[in-house]
Design a protein around this nucleic acid. Structure first.
Lengths: 159, 159
DNA sequence: TGTGAAATTTCAAGTCT
DNA sequence: AGACTTGAAATTTCACA
């Protein structure tokens, strides 16, 4: 159920064009997409179905402006730990998954063990999050990097 | 055109519920959403329109599985620079925005000046990206953190 | 504002070239 | 395989409470 699941999934040029169009705007009609990729409704629709089933694309979502809902602060958190037992890791991952302010979490290769992207209302709210986290699980060293400006954001992949 | 645009946008409980539903799955029908938030089609539709216009939510997109399109490597790149002139920054930002492998870029407070999230096919492709970047713009120090496992990903905000 | 129903589009399948 | 056709369901509009 985790990590490193191989997804072969051969995609041709038409598939990639469809993905590009959908990433730009998933709310478009089939006709528009078909026109953009230079094909017709039926084949486009069949390919979308196939890619959905293959897990190439997940459900569609809307991107919400964080500031509009009062989430003005974004931190990247670098975490070093001394513990590497399975049990510790299990608790840690569960804690991360349970906290909605953690937008992203990766286990890393090298000196730094984990990196998190955390979105909160302000610095005060980050401290609350931080205190809660270190009380739940033992970590060796934590560095928080505060974002001053989002230069680029987006989930769009170069397909 | 950049940074720190204030978006007051008063949202009530119904708005927030609608956002939650749309973040979970933007492909749902109006009827389903209305049922979930305990309202009816037209008011829900009006609020969605209003929030779209206000920029609270952007266009809907699909999340594409990176592995399915051969993007198996994910790096977080920490960048220190000695230059802080406006002209240098302009060039640097333009370079980041132009490169599709850069999924995210933030200007930071503190010792580290920038953090990037970069998605590429493999370590070799990362090196190509890295060489291209440092040939375009002078940077003092670059640290690349390789992700071994994506514990949590997603754009869903806790609205 | 929210409600209910009408008209226009769009989806999703089946069939045929 | 891709193009036409069709029934069902969705979106968007409009008049009313």
């Amino acid at each position: 159920m985790t990590a490193q699941t191989r997804k072969p999934a051969r995609l041709d040029e038409l598939d990639r064009n469809i993905l590009r169009a959908l990433q730009a705007d998933a709310g478009q009609s089939l006709d528009e997409i078909a026109r953009q990729v230079g094909s017709s409704k039926t084949p486009v629709w069949n390919r979308i179905r196939k890619m959905r089933e293959a897990g190439v694309m997940g459900p569609s979502t809307v991107v919400v402006d964080p500031q509009a809902i009062g989430l003005d602060a974004c931190f990247f958190v670098l975490i070093r730990t001394s513990e590497h037992e399975a049990e510790w890791q299990r608790t840690f991952l569960a804690a991360l998954r349970a906290r909605p302010e953690v937008q992203e979490a990766h286990r890393l290769a090298g000196e730094i063990d984990y990196i998190l992207k955390v979105r909160v209302a302000d610095a005060r709210a980050y401290d609350v999050f931080y205190q809660a986290l270190i009380s739940e699980v033992r970590v060796f060293n934590v560095t928080a990097l505060l974002s001053m400006e989002e230069i680029k954001t987006g989930t769009a992949l170069p397909v």
